[in-house]
Design a protein around this nucleic acid. Structure first.
Length: 327
RNA sequence: CGCGGGGUGGAGCAGUCCGGUAGCUCGCGAGGCUCAUAACCUCGAGGUCCUAGGUUCAAAUCCUAGCCCCGCAA
C-alpha cells in the first residue's frame, strides 16, 4: 500500500522506522514545521529518518488548509499513518487517502483520550496501560478500535521510560493493523463513551506539587511529569525570596510526621531531605534549584541551609504552620 | 540579537549592592576518641576568585569587551 506517515514527536519514531521494514511504500512524511531555523539546531529524528530514505517531507503550518489538502490528495495514498503528529485532522484531510487514517494512541482507549495519556495514567497511579490503534474520525481519539495491546506499568517507571516502551509496542501493533487493513477484513470495535476519560495536554502549572496529597500520590506526580514540565515547589526561607526547586527522584515514606503540617521539612541533613505530606512523607533524592543543573540531595544541602521546620509549598501564601496542634 | 541564572581550593554555596586578611557545609590527608561507626574532637594540604583591558594606594567586589556553562522557552 501507499502510506503517508504523519508524525512529529519521539513517540512516532519507532513506528516510522518500522514502516520501512514492510513491503509498503512510504510516500511522504508529514510533520510539524521547524520552529527554530538557527544552524546547529537538531532537526529531529523523524526528519532524519525521512532524509535517510529519501522520503519527501511535507511540513505545513496548517494541515487542514485547502492548499495542504491539495498536496495530500496528490500523494494518492491508501492510508494515513498518524502518530504523535500535533494537529487535528479534519474529515476532508482524512478523505484524501483511500482508506482514511489510523492513529496510534498511548492508552487503552477509551481511557485517557487526549495529548498526554502516558503522563496522566502514571499520575493517577494506574498499574496497567497500553496502546490502541483506532480508525480516525473527526472526533479526537474517539474512533473505533482496530487493535489494542496492554502492558503493566512498573512501580517506579517514569513517563519517559514508559513512553519508550509503548512506542515500541505501538510500532509493532501499527504494522499489524496496516496488514489487516490491507487484507480487508477488519473488525473495528466502537468505543464505549461511558468509559472515556480525558488526558489533556500538560501545562507548566501541572508540575506544582500539592503537599497535602498522600506521599504515594506525590511520587506518582513526579514520575508522571517527565521530561516536562517536571514537578516543582518553592522553598520558603526565613530570609530572602522563595526559591523554586525542581524535584528529582523521590520516594514515599509511610510514616506521617506528627505535629507538623504538610509541606514542612522534617529532616535535612547529609543526604536525607524529608518533607511531610498529607499522608506519609516524601524522601527527596535530588533537587534542581532554579537556573541550575540537577543536584544530589547531598550536594544541595551542602550549599543551601535547609532546616527542619522550613516550608515547601506554592510560591505565594507561606501558609504558616496551620496545625501545630497534633492530629 | 528569545528570556533568565551563573563561572570563588575536589563538590555545593556565601562574600559582590557599600572595594581593604579567602569564608561556610562537605570531601580529601594525618592524628585522637571509641567495642565500633556514615558519629565526635584536633590539626593539615589544596584557590590564576572564567579571560583580557580599565579605574584605584588597594579589585572576587566598580567599569568595558570577550569566552564558557546551565535553566526556561512544547
Amino acid at each position: 500500500m501507499r502510506l503517508v506517515m504523519m508524525g512529529t514527536g519521539p513517540f512516532a519514531v519507532p513506528t516510522f522506522r518500522k514502516l520501512y521494514e514492510t513491503d509498503h511504500t512510504v510516500v511522504a512524511l508529514v510533520t510539524g514545521p521547524l520552529k527554530d531555523h538557527r544552524p546547529g539546531v537538531a532537526v529531529g529524528p523523524m526528519r532524519d529518518l525521512a532524509h535517510e530514505h529519501l522520503t519527501p517531507i511535507f511540513d505545513p503550518e496548517d494541515i487542514n488548509s485547502p492548499e495542504s489538502q491539495v498536496s495530500l490528495a496528490a500523494m494518492e495514498a491508501d492510508l494515513l499513518v498518524v502518530c504523535d503528529y500535533g494537529q487535528i485532522l479534519s474529515a476532508a484531510v482524512l478523505g484524501t487517502a483511500r482508506l482514511g487514517g489510523i492513529n496510534l494512541h498511548a492508552s487503552l482507549l477509551p481511557k485517557y483520550r487526549g495529548a498526554a495519556p502516558i503522563n496522566w495514567a502514571i499520575y493517577h497511579g494506574e498499574t496497567e496501560t497500553g496502546v490502541s490503534v483506532i480508525h480516525m474520525t473527526p472526533a479526537v481519539d474517539a474512533g473505533p478500535i482496530i487493535a489494542q495491546a496492554s502492558t503493566p506499568i512498573r512501580p517506579d517507571e517514569t513517563a519517559v521510560e514508559l513512553e519508550a516502551r509503548l512506542a515500541e509496542i505501538g510500532a509493532w501493533l501499527m504494522v499489524r493493523a496496516i496488514d489487516t487493513l490491507q487484507e480487508g477484513h477488519v473488525e473495528a470495535i466502537p468505543q464505549d463513551p461511558a468509559q472515556a476519560s480525558k488526558a489533556p495536554r500538560l501545562k507548566k502549572s501541572d508540575g506544582l506539587i500539592d503537599w497535602n496529597r498522600p506521599a504515594a500520590a506525590i511520587r506518582n506526580h513526579v514520575r508522571a511529569m517527565e521530561p516536562w514540565p517536571k514537578t516543582f515547589t518553592f522553598w520558603h526561607r526565613e530570609s530572602g525570596p522563595p526559591v523554586r526547586l525542581i524535584l528529582g527522584p523521590v520516594s514515599a515514606l509511610p510514616r506521617t510526621p506528627k505535629g507538623v503540617g504538610p509541606g514542612t521539612v522534617v529532616e535535612a541533613a547529609r543526604d536525607r531531605l524529608v518533607v511531610a505530606a498529607g499522608e506519609g512523607a516524601v524522601l527527596i533524592q535530588g533537587v534542581q534549584p532554579a537556573g541550575k543543573r540537577l543536584l544530589s540531595t547531598r550536594e544541595f544541602l551542602n550549599g543551601h541551609r535547609v532546616r527542619p521546620g522550613d516550608r515547601f509549598g506554592p510560591e505565594q501564601a507561606p501558609a504558616m504552620p496551620l496545625s501545630i496542634a497534633s492530629r
